[in-house]
Design a protein around this nucleic acid. Structure first.
Lengths: 214, 214
DNA sequence: TATAGAATTAATCAAATGATTAAAAAAATT
DNA sequence: AATTTTTTTAATCATTTGATTAATTCTATA
């Protein structure tokens, strides 16, 4: 029998092959239906490969999930942390950049946030151990907010409130999209238009929420 | 063998018995882990009853889920609709009532929103067919917002933006709680305190977001 | 108390599902 | 071209899991 999981020169070369097809299919199905509801047979079918190849390349469904999951989490949170820890932008600029980047991202992958939050709740340790979220924040970002508060430019409440509001206003509409569509009877096209509007609106809202002089 | 699913005088009487125990356990596990990840054996164990009784009372896991799900959705959305369609409160009052009611609710059932949105995405038809969300809204609430806009008291954008912001600012922190706890290193106690603060803050934010004169 | 109906239990079934195996095909190496 | 190694396939295994069955216990009522 063939030796499993051996890295060959060839595989490094054209990596967009079987292994990658499986990961892509797994990413799609896991984010859409979650771990438990996704069958290995669904993945193999979606990837157009034989069922056994999943285990051949990734040993088990759980291992495959772990791999895909860590990638998703790293991408998502590193993206956010990258914006917020940037030392050469004001908070106002950070907000604008964040809103634009993440509405664009979520327009393409609307299932992502719901999946991420669900998964982190099921398995919070991974966020620290494998993704290293701890290191990402804390550093520059909160200091910047603290300075704004001390200079009386920002209303003095726990900075986390502002973070919750910002991320919430960007991410929540995508989480609630299926409900909203029925609630207000808007079609996907109109929904996208609303999200486009929010690219401008959210920064304005953040401003009036945070500043002292009303 | 005993005849199944027969309603007896006795059962109507002390309804907080087996049937209710199963529903309670199912509610807990379904909301916590989702449909696919919840085993009927988990439910029977949690309820402290024999596995067969689940099918005896509810025919199948799917039927039980459907039942529990419709109850959850009706409770959740009727609660919201009830507040928003009230004709004798201003929009400002509605906001305050909503924030207080739902932070209290979510403090007790923090898993609820994530579960609801996930489930609605998986099965959006039910929200209309079984829960009747269509009827709930549309009526008084949006008219009230429209009047505010026409009277130039509220900034003229799609009313849905305000709904998204309000519900988002209340619900999103609970969805993101596991992430936030690691992100900011706050313990559950401090998190609860923040949510208490938001009962006051969210109405203020909604006000400055909506009103013209800054 | 006797009896019928309802509720509960332990044992078991059948299908689904993750995983493995051995053989075949393809690719790389000599 | 021959041989070795890697990749792919079809068949199968073992476990999990939703559901059923038949017997047993409990409860109400006549």
């Amino acid at each position: 029998m063939a030796k499993k999981l051996t890295k060959t020169k060839k595989k490094e070369k054209l990596d967009l092959s079987t292994e990658e097809k499986i990961k892509k299919a797994a990413l799609m199905l896991f984010t859409k239906k979650g771990f438990a509801a996704t069958r290995t047979r669904d993945i193999s079918e979606e990837a157009g490969i034989n069922l056994a190849l999943l285990n051949y390349y990734f040993r088990s469904k759980a291992k495959l999930f772990e791999l895909v999951m860590v990638e998703i989490l790293q991408n998502f949170f590193r993206g956010i942390a990258g914006i917020f820890n940037e030392e050469n932008t004001t908070f106002e600029e950070k907000v604008k950049i964040f809103v634009e980047n993440y509405t664009d991202l979520l327009k393409q992958q609307p299932d992502l946030p719901l999946f991420i939050f669900q998964e982190v709740r099921m398995n919070p340790e991974r966020l620290v151990s494998k993704v290293g979220l701890d290191e990402m924040f804390k550093s520059f970002f909160f200091k910047q907010l603290q300075h704004g508060i001390e200079a009386k430019k920002i209303i003095a409440i726990h900075p986390l409130h502002y973070v919750i509001n910002l991320i919430g206003m960007c991410v929540f509409p995508f989480i609630a999209a299926p409900v909203l569509k029925h609630l207000a009877g808007i079609d996907p096209r109109a929904f996208e238009a609303l999200m486009e509007e929010r690219k401008v609106l959210v920064p304005q809202w953040m401003k009036v929420i945070m500043e002292h002089n009303r």
